[in-house]
Design a protein around this nucleic acid. Structure first.
Lengths: 344, 344
DNA sequence: TTGTACGCGTTATCAA
DNA sequence: TTGATAACGCGTACAA
């Protein structure tokens, strides 16, 4: 077992000083050609690489990005993560992930840990519990300490920082319009509890479309599925109690469940009931019928988030300069498959 | 903006030496009660936390684990990752992820980078390209440098290290037997190219079951789907050319595609054709019919891998002790849903 | 009971 | 052209 070689060891071996070695390896012209060659050859032979930790300590930057997300077994988040990781790697950054598991406490603890020197900045999507509690002191804390923060998807209006969001409201509007164009009359919405602000925005777009297009907005046609469990029976009951001919779902799992239950009950999709879901994942592609879906372009979101963060990291602002924050909007797109009909 | 406070600053502020502060904060009894109280109160007020980087440098351990996987937008890998992250976090470790994207070069570069001080050990699943090239010098390299390595799922026989694998061969055997018990006669296999050694093992289990149970093993009933693209037409052609009444698929995407094409062609699942797939993901749960599947228990794999790694990290072996390696086997389980029939 | 000195690996500044 | 020194932040053996 050969431990990694250090400057000091090279110096001792070659009987020169540490600083000479350091300079030689940077090809400084303070050092004579001969010594440089000798040192460089030796370093190459022993495959010398500077120790990242020592560099981090010295430079006060780790070249690590902290990513805090609610869940990792989740198509959208992994997609975003892939975008982050790709862009960050290209720029020489590594990514440390922490999963909050939708828990406020974990989120806080993890971020504190990372903030003790492990990373240079954060990219995050806040946990459900955090949104519920409406307590964001941990975000303020890290920003106070000088860590750039980029929020994506589940962002917080009260926090001033860079953000990357989707045009949730508009795309929900578009999707709803699509149903109406198809000739559908009673469009339902299946959503999650509203402290997820993305759900709220999607619901707004849905409502606005109905009202503006002169269709009926009936609050009873909105089904709020509880956070964990019991979706199945919940949706089943919804079918029994209400009547509708189109359903917009805030995720693809709901959408596939809606299609399944509809078909069990003898409705045809899309002839009797059209369905659109958010999240263009595997389910959408392989369900029957295949699902018309809203692609969130998570990878792009990740790239943009990473780009914004790294820009902040590499352009540390001067004293008197005003800090400015941007909000980038990623345009979702509607992907038409077979769970919706043609325009009339 | 208030930067994190350091021992030095506390010392200056309180007009004591740095080491006094350090000791006081560890509640050392070398320090008088009074000074301890004073220092602790001050530290608490300013929310002092030791700098991880400095600790890493001093202790020569980072408390970071490097995870190298081929893909992150992938149900199985994220599942394993979740297990790793959970266990690691509980033990005070953070996780740095690198995605090789199935590329040999990326894998090599990423590992070298991490090995320059960023992490204490590796958990990885090798990329497809690496398996194809059969070049594992980068794994040997990091091990030589003293980094513990735990391989999972896609492991390498020639490399001696800790491993976590699934009982692929046996569970494929079991699944195949299940078809036979159902009364099926011609069992097909849909798999990927064989340099994925897990595919190879699954194929072996499939063959062994047919032979041992006295059914026919017909090589023509094995469909090897090419690495990227064209699955659809490939499977379609398979249906045209061969006859079978049961299909074992090495992943759930293939399985769902097989069911879809079968149903299009007028076969009933499971009456005419039974289907079982590996990977108990969303698709299996929401396909129609729901898919009988092999649960790989990825989260457990991740936990075990992390446990093995951390054990190695925390029990650095002495000089003369022999290094020993283990291979843990995670038992997959067959989850029966509606794409297979009852035992006869 | 407190403080000094050293080392972890590196780089930058200044002196020789 | 080379080397000594200090610094990044921390912990600890040893000296005072």
């Amino acid at each position: 077992m050969k431990r990694k070689i250090t400057l000091k060891q090279i110096a001792r071996e070659l009987e020169v000083s540490i600083s000479t070695v350091s300079k030689a390896l940077k090809d400084s012209d303070e050092i004579s050609k001969d010594t440089k060659q000798k040192i460089q050859a030796f370093a190459k032979l022993y495959n010398y690489r500077p120790n990242n930790i020592a560099l981090s300590l010295k430079n006060r930057r780790t070249k690590n990005i902290g990513v805090v997300i609610p869940d990792i077994v989740h198509h959208f988040f992994t997609t975003v993560f892939r975008g982050i990781e790709k862009y960050a790697n290209e720029r020489g950054y590594n990514v440390i992930v922490c999963v909050s598991d939708e828990s406020y406490d974990k989120e806080v603890v993890n971020m504190e840990l990372l903030a003790n020197g492990s990373i240079d900045g954060f990219i995050m999507s806040v946990s459900a519990e955090t949104q519920q509690k409406n307590d964001f002191h941990h975000l303020r804390e890290v920003m106070d300490q000088g860590f750039p923060l980029v929020l994506f998807d589940r962002v917080i209006d009260e926090i001033e920082c860079d953000k990357v969001v989707m045009n949730d409201e508009e795309i929900a509007y578009e999707a709803t319009c699509k149903f109406l164009e198809e000739g559908k009359k009673k469009v339902a919405l299946v959503t999650t509890e509203s402290y997820f602000n993305v759900s709220e925005k999607r619901a707004e777009g849905y409502r606005r479309a109905l009202v503006e297009q002169g269709a009926d907005y009936d609050p009873k046609l909105t089904l709020v599925v509880p956070f964990r469990g019991g979706e199945e029976s919940c949706i089943d009951a919804f079918f029994e109690e209400e009547e509708f001919d189109a359903v917009l779902c805030v995720n693809e799992v709901f959408a596939v469940q809606v299609m399944g239950i509809a078909q069990e009950k003898g409705y045809r999709v899309p002839e009797d009931i059209s369905v659109i879901g958010f999240t263009n994942g595997l389910l959408s592609r392989y369900s029957s019928p295949t699902l018309t879906t809203i692609a969130q372009h998570g990878e792009r979101m990740g790239e943009v988030a990473a780009e914004m963060l790294i820009e902040k990291l590499e352009n540390e602002i001067g004293f008197e300069e005003e800090e400015t924050y941007r909000t980038e909007i990623i345009e979702a797109t509607l992907i038409e498959r077979n769970s919706t009909g043609k325009k009339k």
